[in-house]
Write a protein that binds this DNA or RNA. Structure first.
Lengths: 215, 215
DNA sequence: GTCTACAAGATTGTTGACAATCTTCCCACA
DNA sequence: TGTGGGAAGATTGTCAACAATCTTGTAGAC
């Protein structure tokens, strides 16, 4: 495992990934000495990394009581999704204004792959492609500020991402919604793109709300 | 000056304020030893504080080359304002759904004070009240996720906040727009509140754009 | 006169040790 | 049996010293 010498940035990325992929679970204590040993670095480095992750919303620190992985409740996951809706709508609008032909080609390519996944019932790949499509749209918008906000939001809610697509009838609907977003962007229609993205994420939001009720 | 013993949180707040109020200017180098002396603490503390401020977008750090106050260009200020528009519209929507009578009373009170400032031509106080009103709306929305995003955005663009209100005819327009937002919230009409907030911030955005052209 | 090589100074990166604080566990005592 | 006190261990907070790196200034070669 990671017993090599690592600088701060590398430690940050690794620790961040461990939190996002669930290697470190919500509410798990993050003991500086232990992490330092695991990452092959000193406590000082771990300390600054934990501070960064706290600012990013992935970690909670309490004075003299150390850090733990922040637990994101269902309620909060909903809030995050609502905020994402606001940001991604903005990004869709700008993507419609600024997307280049190659951006649009990439989106359509991803859409085609997503369609294939649905037909084969491969929802895991679909989920990955979904994330990729949203990222391509964000990049096409060329709006670094909004993109940065979205990235921090995204990392916090990964834990809840896989659930919604499993809802009955959701895959087909999801595909239709994505299609509408991409076509609006391709038509360089900002209003339509913003509206389509808002509709799409409202759909996700509603599904999440319903799943929560069911449980 | 600050030669008292300070813990990390206090150092963070002080340094943050120094950046926001311009005591530390954009692009100014932040030398760890110097700050440690000024704040009466050790370099380790300063180091984690700088890491947090970087994550917050107020500071830029380069490996082996230290930290400096992040310079926000006009272009970026516009981006920040656009992102703010997205978030604050969301907050206005939720405020319309969740505001209590005392929240609304507070908003109206602030509005009255703002009106008085306009009549007396006191634009400095107006600016402060403006900020206060936006904060009250954000709190009334009871949406911590969006509120947190807004706070980080706000701290980055303070430098450009005073300019827009100085544009000819802007004060009166601004007051009318704020009035519309508050009345929509008071009427518990989410759509109208969101729309009014969006219109208001688009106005600010447009003014900023025009000011930039003029220069 | 301009450019490269190198030394000196300044600053960041890292480590280890120590102090302060919290947590846990055990024991005396009611 | 239950409870408060306190000691031991674990963990965080802080500091000073050292190593690594970058920057600046100077001297020499062409």
């Amino acid at each position: 495992m990671g017993t090599q010498l690592l600088n701060e940035q590398t430690c940050y990325e690794r620790l961040r990934n461990w939190i996002i992929d669930g290697t470190l679970q919500p509410n798990e204590r993050l003991i500086e000495l232990e992490l330092a040993a695991r990452l092959g670095t000193g406590r000082a480095t771990i300390r600054t990394v934990l501070a960064r992750l706290e600012q990013e919303g992935l970690v909670v620190r309490e004075p003299n009581r150390g850090a733990r992985v922040r637990f994101v409740s269902h309620e909060e996951a909903l809030e995050i999704l609502e905020a994402r809706t606001a940001i991604e709508s903005l990004l869709a609008r700008f993507a419609a204004m600024r997307a280049r032909p190659e951006d649009i080609a990439q989106m359509r390519d991803l859409l085609a792959q997503m369609r294939a996944c649905i037909e084969q019932g491969d929802l895991v790949s679909y989920s990955a492609l979904n994330t990729a499509l949203h990222r391509v749209i964000a990049e096409a918008a060329r709006h670094r500020t909004a993109a940065r906000l979205l990235e921090t939001l995204g990392s916090q809610s990964v834990r809840y991402q896989y659930r919604t697509i499993l809802a009955p009838g959701r895959p087909a609907t999801s595909l239709t919604e994505h299609n509408a977003v991409v076509e609006a962007i391709a038509a360089h229609d900002p209003d339509a793109a913003e509206q389509a993205m808002r509709a799409h994420l409202s759909g996700v939001c509603e599904t999440l709300r319903r799943l929560r009720q069911g449980h």
